[in-house]
Simulated scan of single mutants.
Amino acid sequence: MDTTPVKTILSRPVFGTLSPQTGSHHLFVADAEGALAISDMAARAPAGFFEGAEIVYIPDPDGKHVAALEALKPGQFHQAPSFASLLPRLKQTLANAHMGLRLYLAGTEGLIGQAMQVALEAGIDHTSIQTEHRGSLARRMQCVHCKGITENVTTQPATCAHCGLLLLVRDHYSRRLAAFQGVCINAEDRSEIPPMEEIFR
């Protein structure tokens, strides 16, 4: 019997654990449970670490964890209702960044992927970026047929929010798009509709 471990899919992102780094500016971008990763890191950070830090946070609708992040007394704290709404601020901050910037991304895979994409496009060195996944495993999916992006996919298969096709959510992850690929699951016979299961919670 072969006991060789199954190779992981190389395109899948690999996340670590946030840890305080030396740098001239610390920028945190997080959503939902990502706040817990920042709070956990704060317990290991030296005194005064957050005085010059900036936290940009997308809270859950109930506003949970906002008070905990504010209690860290960061130099700047901003809340945003969605990633799209914080994008202009993030792009401007990264465009004006100097050597010594440290970027910390925490929360859902969708947030981390999109923020990483923006940072790399802005020329931020990947060694200056730390990531930690916390919370939902919901996926950001791109339909390979219509190219539309569907956010927060939790089922397998999933329906494309743009063209309505029933898609198999593949494990292939596109770093360029910050999304998993979705392929029509019943292309040969549309009457074949496999049951949907909650897989990515």
Rank of each mutant, 00 (worst) to 15 (best):
S191C: 02
I112R: 07
P20G: 03
M196G: 00
M99R: 11
E109S: 05
T155F: 06
S82H: 04
Y173D: 01
D2T: 12
I58C: 01
P20H: 07
L36M: 14
M141F: 04
A106G: 13
L94M: 01
D171S: 10
D189Y: 00
E109T: 12
L166G: 01
D189L: 00
G100E: 08
Q181V: 12
T154Y: 02
T155G: 02
A158C: 11
M196I: 00
L137P: 03
E197F: 08
Y57I: 06
Q117V: 01
R176H: 10
D2Y: 03
A71H: 07
H172S: 04
Q156M: 15
A122S: 15
Q130W: 11
L120N: 04
Y104M: 11
M1R: 10
P195W: 04
E132W: 01
H145I: 09
R12K: 13
T22H: 03
C160L: 06
R201P: 02
R175P: 11
A95G: 01
R190V: 00
Y104E: 10
L87H: 05
V56D: 02
P13Y: 08
L103Q: 03
R170H: 08
H98L: 09
G16H: 10
I55C: 05
G113Q: 07
S174F: 09
I185D: 02
I193F: 03
L69S: 11
Q156F: 07
A43N: 08
A37Y: 14
A71E: 09
P157C: 01
A37Q: 09
K7R: 12
M116Q: 06
E151Y: 11
S24E: 13
G23K: 03
P5V: 07
P81K: 05
S85Y: 02
R139M: 05
C143P: 02
A45I: 04
I129F: 03
E188F: 11
V183G: 00
V66H: 05
A30G: 04
R201D: 09
R140P: 04
I129E: 11
Q130H: 06
A37H: 11
N186T: 10
I193Q: 12
G148P: 06
M41T: 08
P74Y: 06
A47F: 03
T154Q: 15
A68I: 07
T93K: 15
G135C: 14
R176W: 01
H65D: 13
N186A: 05
A179T: 12
A71N: 12
C184E: 14
I9W: 04
H145Y: 01
H25A: 12
F49R: 12
G135R: 08
L165R: 15
L10G: 09
M99P: 07
Q21K: 11
R139S: 05
G123C: 02
T17Y: 10
P5M: 07
D171T: 10
H162K: 14
S39V: 15
G34F: 10
V66S: 03
A178E: 02
K147T: 07
K91D: 10
L72E: 15
I38G: 11
P13L: 11
E188L: 12
T22C: 04
G34E: 06
G148Q: 10
H98W: 00
A97M: 14
G63M: 13
P61D: 13
T17M: 07
F83D: 01
R201H: 14
M1V: 14
E51N: 12
L10M: 05
A80T: 05
G123R: 04
V66I: 15
P157A: 00
P5I: 07
F77V: 15
E70P: 08
P194V: 08
E54L: 09
G123F: 02
T22R: 05
R102F: 13
R201Y: 12
E151D: 15
